[in-house]
Design a binder for these strands. Sequence first.
DNA 1: AAAATGTTTATTGTAGATAAAAAACAAAAT
DNA 2: ATTTTGTTTTTTATCTACAATAAACATTTT
Lengths: 299, 299
Amino acid sequence: MARQNTVFKEAYNRYAVALRTDTALPSEPEIAAQLGVSRSTARAILTRLSEEGIIRWNKRQKIVLRQPTDHDLFPSEETDSLHDIIERSFMQRILADDAAPGMQINELELAREIGTGTTSVREFLIRFSRFGLIEKRPNSHWTLKGFTREFALELADVREMFELHSAAEFGRLPRDNQSWADLAAIRDEHHAMLDDINQRFKDFSVLDERFHLLIHRASKNRFIADFYDAIAIVFHYHYQWNKTAARQRNERAIHEHLDYIAALESGDQAAIDAACRAHLHSARQTLLQSLPQIATETA
Amino acid sequence: MARQNTVFKEAYNRYAVALRTDTALPSEPEIAAQLGVSRSTARAILTRLSEEGIIRWNKRQKIVLRQPTDHDLFPSEETDSLHDIIERSFMQRILADDAAPGMQINELELAREIGTGTTSVREFLIRFSRFGLIEKRPNSHWTLKGFTREFALELADVREMFELHSAAEFGRLPRDNQSWADLAAIRDEHHAMLDDINQRFKDFSVLDERFHLLIHRASKNRFIADFYDAIAIVFHYHYQWNKTAARQRNERAIHEHLDYIAALESGDQAAIDAACRAHLHSARQTLLQSLPQIATETA
DNA sequence: AAAATGTTTATTGTAGATAAAAAACAAAAT
DNA sequence: ATTTTGTTTTTTATCTACAATAAACATTTT
């Protein structure tokens, strides 16, 4: 097998669930653009929908005959991209308790375990190496550096430098910039979450990511944006496996965010700096507390 | 061909040139450690040296019979690692005048031109992408973002944040730390270069890199260190193709370095901050002036 | 016993092949 | 004339295979 058609299957599912009986579908290029795939893939979707009797397709005429059922969709195992499968599987391994810093990472073993070829694993590891959690010795194995206290501190230091910079830039944005409207929307979502904190505290991490991403976008700096992507992925998996005192921690963070947002909206650089520092300081504490207690760097 | 034996050939050359007639060679593990290769490769080297009549080898006895000549060495084309070949070839392309920002990068075409497989090119591009000069659209081509004014400004911003941080950390190092001795040595080299500036101004870039690397090491932060690696590679190629007003520019930079070093040695954080800012400001100007004038981002 | 050499095994680095997906080209319809 | 559909070509993503290299194991030497 050279390549799985996961792009097709995933897009097919996405398109099928949105279909409504008796409606007419747009042109092929439009469908392709909607789904973010090429027209070739869009046509493959239409072909399959037609074969399954879900639409009647004749050149420009595309009529939805019936609503697709769950039975028509591809199972979720077949729609995940190989990259995502490897990422999940790998993160699970390195965040597991038995993954000690200094451990060797074997490409072939990983590939066999995941049920994939070595090339994909190699490429994943190369991409992943920019997060600073693994390191390669040339012509030899990868080494797991691990989610240690040192890692957390180094990450937090860079994050603070970048976010102070981005926040200051944000404060300088002209008032008619779209980001101010986005910020106001996010502010309102914070209030809404706070009103129903007991039910919704679990949704905070998504909101948190959106908030910080908005701030970092203001810097218009590709290195800062890339670094925040890395942080977001690492945190995503880390907090998924380490859910401690989430309710209280998140409520506190929401209040800090609201102070921070108010400072941004005031446009007062000193206030922005202070509010940003306050939040980053407590974010650092949260991160350090979430670390597995055993893990210390094996220099 | 699965893999070229460039590791062997490069290490063979390195070892051969250091041989002296009538000396005895150390044990295999020791040779391997000296060269930074495995014992397997070290043995391959000894085998070849023996076959060529350069040494007499019998178990522990390894006597150098004759000095190897240039004729005994492998030609330099055969000793470069594939990664280096691809890197050079690629940098040449993207720094060439006809490489306009927004241009597509074709893996297969690049591979054919370099005379290598696509896998190696792909892996190179993935690694190279962290420098922010190229970008990938999933399932589609790479795009050259190019050495533009935007790139230079974003790079300079991050560099300044990191170096101000590292310089402050350097100032806090205990006086018995090895870095202070290294700094003094580099200070002396600056003076020596200044005394003979007309002859030696071309060697400045190497000294410059060592100086800044020493500072960044003080931060003990893997993200800062990695970023400086990226800067160093980009600058290495960039200044190789853009040699403008090197004499004057370098002399000025040496003076700034000496001020900066004096500030570090004083331990006065305010002085360090000021000297660091002064140098970074002029480094930014140098970088901007070295840009090709045509290149502006195609958003 | 510890270190060196001799031998075998495991792992990485790279080429080549192939299906999926994108992109380009050609013909038809508004 | 522009957009849409039909068809072909190009390019990417991924698997498999294999030589180079590293690493492990076994034997010998000091």
